[in-house]
């Protein structure tokens, strides 16, 4: 049940999603990936992508126009 931070701050679409995909491959089931972005489309794309693959994901707007994402790797 480890928590991984991934720095995607200021990265352009779709680099955050590509980085997250890569990072997830090296994670164990039950691990949580924490992401933070100020890019509305990026946040949306990651949520849609995660839901497609039935990963658990929560999206929270922590400040004006900044989104905090927590993705749980529920399966391989």
């Amino acid at each position: 049940m480890a928590r991984f931070q991934l720095d995607i701050w200021g990265e352009m679409c779709p680099i955050p999603l590509l980085k997250a995909q890569k990072k997830l491959k090296g994670m164990n089931i039950g691990d949580i990936l924490v992401l933070e972005t100020e890019h509305s489309c990026t946040s949306r794309a990651i949520v849609v992508w995660a839901k497609d693959r039935a990963y658990e994901i929560t999206e929270q707007e922590v400040a004006n126009g900044i989104w905090h994402l927590e993705l749980t790797k529920t399966h391989d």
Binding site: C13, P14, L17, L18, Q21, C41, A45, W49
Partner: peptide
């Protein structure tokens, strides 16, 4: 995104 993402992600 509509033309890029099918192949990229």
């Amino acid at each position: 995104s509509a033309v890029r993402d099918p192949l990229l992600v």
